[in-house]
């Protein structure tokens, strides 16, 4: 998927642990792990809003679009 989640980078910048964030957002650590590892297929606006609020960042800070290389 060309959308890359940089949540771990932001967590490191804010010196916050994954389980702390999960607890504050109100999602399980397993779901946060799915998001961090890029396995997630979609993210709810409510989750995104909560992450941005807690980490004090913009959606673009935790997500990045990198186009896939076209196969020859």
């Amino acid at each position: 998927m060309p959308i890359i989640v940089n949540l771990d980078v932001m967590l490191a910048k804010r010196k916050m642990r994954s389980n702390e964030l999960a607890e504050q957002i109100g999602i399980t650590t397993a779901n946060l792990s799915i998001l961090k590892t890029g396995k997630a297929k979609a993210i709810r606006f409510s989750t995104l809003e909560a992450i941005c609020e807690i980490l004090d960042c913009q959606p673009g800070d935790i997500m990045e679009y990198i186009p896939e290389e076209k196969k020859l």
């Binding site: 779901n31 799915i34 998001l35 396995k39 997630a40 297929k41 979609a42 993210i43 989750t47």
Partner: peptide
């Protein structure tokens, strides 16, 4: 179903 399960 898989997509729904992988929606965070």
């Amino acid at each position: 179903k898989e997509e729904n399960e992988l929606t965070v």
